[in-house]
């Protein structure tokens, strides 16, 4: 008889995910796992399937087949798990233009089941952390793109999710804000949050990610750890896959 195992399941498990869009395969047979405190960078050219993958993880799109597990629970069967465990910043941070920054945080908190003092505390904490105090009473419709992105991030982090899904989070941020974002991602990972972020920027991956996954035409072509000073190797792998669909053919890139 074997002793019962106490190993915690990964925060995120993708099992053979398939999704078609406009009649074409956008994601094909994608399997990945992500543990507590890990930061995974999802790379790929436009149309590689990054946003589709993240939308499925966030519960905004349903896969055609496959499974998504969060903490071992079937997310497709229990989408309400998202309320507690998942924070998502979609590309271009969609907001309600007629609501203020503070009202956004209140609405998101309520949608995540926060009430009363817990909601007030969470709102105050995230406003302080993302330095949104001067914007708190400003309407979302008049925010700059960078400010919108910060508000979107605040909404995603408000309820301390176990899994943070970021779709091109550095878009429209200035270099100072990008540095602050990297620090924030690292801080979240250190606190145990699993983070998955899609980006076009290889520097973003080498700066904050422990792992990298490269998608090409909806297929996972590379998945492995990111080592410090790995930028050139990663660049070769990325361009090789982007141009030839194969990470081993580096000669074509050099040519």
């Amino acid at each position: 008889m074997t002793a019962p195992t106490t190993t915690l399941p990964p925060v995120l498990q993708l099992e053979h995910l398939v999704r078609h869009r406009a009649g074409r395969p956008a994601v094909r047979d994608l399997s990945l796992t992500l543990d507590r405190g890990q930061v995974l960078g999802l790379l790929g050219v436009n149309g590689a399937g990054k946003s589709t993958t993240l939308s499925m993880i966030a519960g905004a799109l349903r896969p055609d087949s496959g499974a998504i597990r969060i903490h071992g629970e079937d997310f497709l069967e229990q989408p309400e798990l998202a309320a507690q465990w998942l924070g998502w910043l979609p590309e271009r941070a969609p907001l309600w233009p007629e609501l203020t920054v503070s009202e956004h945080l209140t609405a998101h908190g309520r949608l995540r089941g926060l009430r009363g003092s817990a909601l007030n505390e969470a709102r105050t904490r995230i406003i302080d952390r993302l330095e949104l105090q001067p914007l708190a009473q400003r309407l979302a419709g008049v925010l700059s793109q960078g400010q919108r992105q910060r508000l979107g991030l605040a909404c995603a982090l408000l309820h301390r999710p176990a899994l943070l899904v970021l779709d091109e989070p550095a878009n429209a941020l200035d270099p100072v804000q990008v540095t602050a974002l990297r620090a924030l991602i690292r801080e979240q990972a250190a606190a145990g949050t699993a983070v998955i972020l899609s980006t076009h920027l290889l520097g973003e991956v080498t700066a904050v990610c422990d792992q990298v996954a490269i998608l090409h035409e909806g297929t996972l072509r590379h998945h492995g750890p990111v080592h410090e000073g790995d930028h050139t190797a990663l660049e070769h792998t990325f361009f090789s896959i982007a141009m030839n669909g194969n990470e081993t053919n580096e000669k074509a890139h050099a040519a």
Binding site: A58, G59, L61, P79, E80, A83, P94, L95
Partner: peptide, 14 residues
């Protein structure tokens, strides 16, 4: 149209 509908889904609201 404003892209906010997926936000409601991603909060786990059926």
């Amino acid at each position: 149209r404003s892209g906010t509908l997926p936000l409601l889904f991603s909060a786990g609201v059926p």
